[in-house]
């Protein structure tokens, strides 16, 4: 039984030293940050910078990284299952499956996945919670590098309890809510802070509903649509075909009658077909 792991970031302890960034770059073999067209500034998240220190207006450092949602939008969006949520927490990426549709980048509520736009053979880049280190029983490189214990790693339940303890214990120091406990169904990266962390997502106010549920509300209707639409169309085709057939038969009968009548009383009577067939008989040729 794997225990879900998590990271707890305490922005009040972060000094913005960026040792986590340097460690992440070293661990993941990321290249230099260059001013590319697709970045606002070079120390934003990018394909060469999977975690970064963002400085708020008042200069306060806040670490940004993938939040490793418990029910990730990117995983549900991925068409080939290249993104996967491991039971122990990390949302990992399999580059051999990826086909580069970038739907994950559209889906992520935090705008985390980045793309190697400069490459002719590009891949998605995002923090994978150093899952290769977790497999070796080590903690993620960024956590190991942090000299202030501003980012710690552990079981999610325990970290959540620790976060609550900090928030309750020092209400003057922290905002009352733990970011990531409920947001978009909960995340494996938690934050306690004195700042409003709404800027981490595309909208400041995130609901507690997991985003994949929104899609599933529509996607789950697919079998119904197939049955209803298929049934309706088959029914309509059968009805219309039958009506046309009956109309054609009636017309033929009438014509016969009229012909007979014509034969009987030559010269008199109505014109042969009072009601021409509404439509030609069902055609099968395209």
């Amino acid at each position: 039984m794997t225990v879900p792991k998590a990271i707890l970031n305490d922005t009040t302890r972060c000094t913005g030293c960026e040792k986590c960034v340097a460690a992440c770059k070293r661990e993941n073999g990321l290249g230099r940050d260059l001013p590319r067209r697709w970045k606002l500034c070079i120390d934003d998240l990018s394909s060469t910078r999977l975690t970064t220190i963002q400085r708020r207006e008042d200069g306060r450092p806040v670490r940004r990284m993938c939040l490793h949602c418990l029910e990730p939008a990117c995983v549900s969006a991925c068409i080939v299952g290249a993104l996967r949520k491991r039971p122990d927490g990390p949302v990992v990426y399999d580059r051999d499956r990826c086909m580069g549709c970038r739907y994950c980048m559209m889906a992520c509520p935090f705008g985390v996945p980045r793309y190697e736009w400069e490459e002719p053979v590009p891949y998605v880049k995002k923090c994978v919670l150093c899952h290769h280190r977790l497999d070796q029983g080590k903690v993620p490189a960024c956590v190991e590098a942090c000299p202030e214990k501003a980012t710690i790693f552990g079981d999610r339940d325990e970290l959540l309890a620790e976060a609550e303890r900090r928030v309750r214990g020092e209400p003057g120091r922290y905002r009352p809510d733990v970011f990531g406990r409920d947001e978009v169904g909960g995340t494996s990266v938690l934050y306690v802070s004195d700042l409003d962390l709404g800027f981490l997502a595309w909208k400041p106010e995130l609901g507690a509903e997991a985003l994949p549920d929104l899609t599933w509300a529509a996607l789950g209707k697919v079998p119904t649509i197939v049955l209803v639409m298929g049934g309706l169309m088959t029914g309509a085709w059968w009805l219309v075909g039958r009506r046309n057939k009956l109309a054609a038969e009636a017309a033929a009968a009438k014509e016969k009658e009229a012909a007979a009548a014509k034969e009987k009383g030559a010269g008199g009577g109505d014109p042969p077909s009072a009601a021409p067939p509404a439509a030609a008989p069902e055609g099968r040729k395209p």
């Binding site: 549900s76 969006a77 991925c78 068409i79 080939v80 299952g81 290249a82 499956r97 990826c98 086909m99 580069g100 549709c101 970038r102 739907y103 793309y115 053979v121 590009p122 891949y123 994949p212 899609t215 599933w216 529509a218 996607l219 697919v222």
Partner: peptide
């Protein structure tokens, strides 16, 4: 043209992920 790795365009058949709307579309 749009896919980053267009030679993987048939991957949805090999690795279906049926929770993805894009999979259904494809």
């Amino acid at each position: 043209y749009d896919l980053g790795l267009p030679w993987h365009i048939l991957n949805p058949v090999a690795h279906p992920q049926h929770h993805s709307v894009l999979f259904e579309v494809a």
